[in-house]
Amino acid sequence: MQNSHSGVNQLGGVFVNGRPLPDSTRQKIVELAHSGARPCDISRILQVSNGCVSKILGRYYETGSIRPRAIGGSKPRVATPEVVSKIAQYKRECPSIFAWEIRDRLLSEGVCTNDNIPSVSSINRVLRNLASEKQQMGADGMYDKLRMLNGQTGSWGTRPGWYPGTSVPGQPTQDGCQQQEGGGENTNSISSNGEDSDEAQMRLQLKRKLQRNRTSFTQEQIEALEKEFERTHYPDVFARERLAAKIDLPEARIQVWFSNRRAKWRREEKLRNQRRQASNTPSHIPISSSFSTSVYQPIPQPTTPVSSFTSGSMLGRTDTALTNTYSALPPMPSFTMANNLPMQPPVPSQTSSYSCMLPTSPSVNGRSYDTYTPPHMQTHMNSQPMGTSGTTSTGLISPGVSVPVQVPGSEPDMSQYWPRLQ
């Protein structure tokens, strides 16, 4: 039975679970980093996980050691009161100082060594604690504590007292930064006198190289990059290397530039699409467009005044059976039934097929058609009795279509119309 579990990581490298990497692998990681390889490249070359490479390099940059820390136990506290007071002093002298600059000053002034120097995250935590204590304490208590930490007896009751030896409130920041720059020169002199001055200088240079600022491109470089971006948004590694040799930039910087440029292009394309949609959409909808001609068919113009009344309900007709019959029939052209047409008796099958359309009241044959006459024609229609054979009435077949029909004066039988409509 094995005491430890061995495995293979996602890159194909072998590791022992819970145990640190061998010293030979750690040394190779540092050597590759000094030669300029990126952590992701080191991870692929040595088949070590990216997190492990970053952790080893980060500890090497901070402490200069590649040895693993002790497994188990607690780390001794490195942010001692003396170190905290120095950090507060540096922050007062130059409020814009960075944590890694404070760390360098602690090393250069001999406050800490490589073994007990606090990390950048520890210094940031100390600065946050100082800021929170400043908010919790009152103004007087804060000034007393700062005077105690600074070891001075001057008056701290006013704002300019934060910067000793100065009279203009805006000047101390520059003086403090100048003092810090002077301390940086002392850093070089002190570290050069040490035993491991060369190694420390190499480590600091490598650290500065990794902690780079934003790349500033010249106009020629920007023009070359934009020209390549117009050709393709995704250049391959050969195109990037050719462009890197042409404009004297690292291939990694060119790759990052193209990634950022593609993101910018997507944002601009989104804005262009929004403007295009806004320009195509009308600002207001016309009133006429809300009524579609496919839904509402136009009603033909009436030929006679009587045809303006298109349904039985508008003429005072309360018989719903006839109203439904007229509205359900398709529109037909106007025609006239003459008196000489043969009077065919209704076929029983045809009569039964339209039995649902006729009223059940037996008085329908005896009703006159003056009910369908509009009010303004009552006088004219009353002067001509319906009993004469020459009287013409208008029957409504569908809305908007008038059918003048000659009705025999002897017997106005409704059943004569249905064979004609089939």
Rank of each mutant, 00 (worst) to 15 (best):
K134T: 10
G7K: 15
L57S: 05
G13H: 04
V83K: 06
S4W: 10
L149K: 14
Q89V: 09
E93N: 13
V84N: 06
Q47F: 03
P81E: 10
P95V: 15
S65K: 06
G72A: 04
I56G: 04
R125I: 00
Y60Q: 00
S49T: 15
K55T: 00
G51Y: 01
V78M: 03
G138V: 11
G110E: 11
A70T: 10
R92K: 13
L57R: 02
P20A: 06
V111Q: 09
N3V: 12
G51M: 00
E82L: 14
I42F: 01
R92V: 12
N17S: 15
R44W: 05
E93M: 10
Y61F: 07
C94T: 13
S35W: 12
A79S: 14
K28L: 08
E133N: 12
I42D: 02
S74N: 01
E82R: 12
Y143N: 12
G64K: 06
D41L: 05
L149H: 13
S6Y: 15
S119G: 01
W100N: 07
S122I: 04
D140L: 10
L149C: 15
P22C: 06
G18A: 02
L146E: 12
Y143A: 13
Q136R: 14
S43L: 02
L32K: 04
S85M: 10
S6D: 07
R147G: 12
I87N: 01
V84T: 07
L32C: 04
R69C: 06
L21T: 05
L106F: 05
L146G: 15
S43F: 01
A99Q: 04
F98D: 00
I117Y: 13
S121A: 06
T113L: 13
P39S: 08
A70N: 12
G18Q: 02
N124W: 15
D41F: 05
I66V: 09
S4C: 10
I123W: 02
R44C: 05
G138W: 09
L146D: 14
A99I: 03
E82V: 11
R77M: 03
Y60F: 15
F15N: 01
R38F: 03
N150G: 09
I87C: 07
N129K: 15
R125V: 00
S43N: 01
S49P: 09
V111C: 09
N50K: 14
S121K: 00
V30A: 07
G12F: 02
G51T: 15
Q136I: 12
Q10N: 06
G72L: 03
G36R: 07
I56T: 02
G64M: 01
E31Q: 13
N150W: 07
K75D: 01
P95Q: 13
E82H: 13
I87S: 05
I66L: 07
V126S: 07
D144S: 11
M142S: 11
L11W: 06
G7N: 13
L130W: 10
C94E: 12
N17I: 15
G110K: 15
L106V: 03
Y61S: 07
F15G: 01
A33I: 07
C40H: 04
S122Q: 00
K75L: 05
R26M: 02
Q89G: 13
P118M: 05
N116K: 15
K86C: 15
I29K: 00
N9M: 02
M137S: 13
R147W: 12
E82M: 12
N150D: 14
D144M: 10
R147I: 14
S85F: 09
T25Q: 08
A33F: 04
S108P: 06
G12N: 02
R105S: 11
N9S: 01
V111R: 10
D115M: 12
W100V: 06
K134G: 14
C112Y: 01
D115R: 13
R105T: 10
R69A: 07
D115F: 11
K145R: 11
S85R: 12
S121Q: 09
R105C: 09
P20Q: 01
S121R: 04
R125S: 05
H5R: 15
I45R: 14
Q27W: 13
C112W: 04
V14Q: 11
G73W: 01
R77S: 06
N124P: 00
N17P: 15
S43A: 08
N114R: 12
E101L: 08
P20Y: 03
G51P: 02
N129L: 08
S96I: 00
Q136T: 12
D140E: 07
R69W: 06
T25I: 07
Q47R: 15
R103E: 04
L32N: 02
S24V: 10
N17G: 03
T80Q: 03
W100H: 08
Q135E: 14
V48S: 01
R103P: 03
G72Y: 04
G12D: 02
A33H: 15
I102V: 05
S43T: 04
Q27M: 14
G7P: 07
S4D: 11
V126L: 05
L107G: 15
L32E: 04
D41V: 07
T113M: 11
S43C: 06
S6Q: 14
R69L: 12
C94A: 13
Y60W: 07
A139N: 14
E62G: 07
S6C: 14
D140Q: 11
T113K: 13
R38P: 05
R147M: 12
V83Q: 01
I42R: 01
N9V: 04
I117V: 15
L32Y: 08
L57V: 06
D23A: 11
P22L: 05
K55Y: 03
A139T: 14
L149F: 11
S119T: 00
V30L: 05
S96N: 13
A88V: 10
L21R: 00
V78K: 15
P22N: 04
Q136H: 10
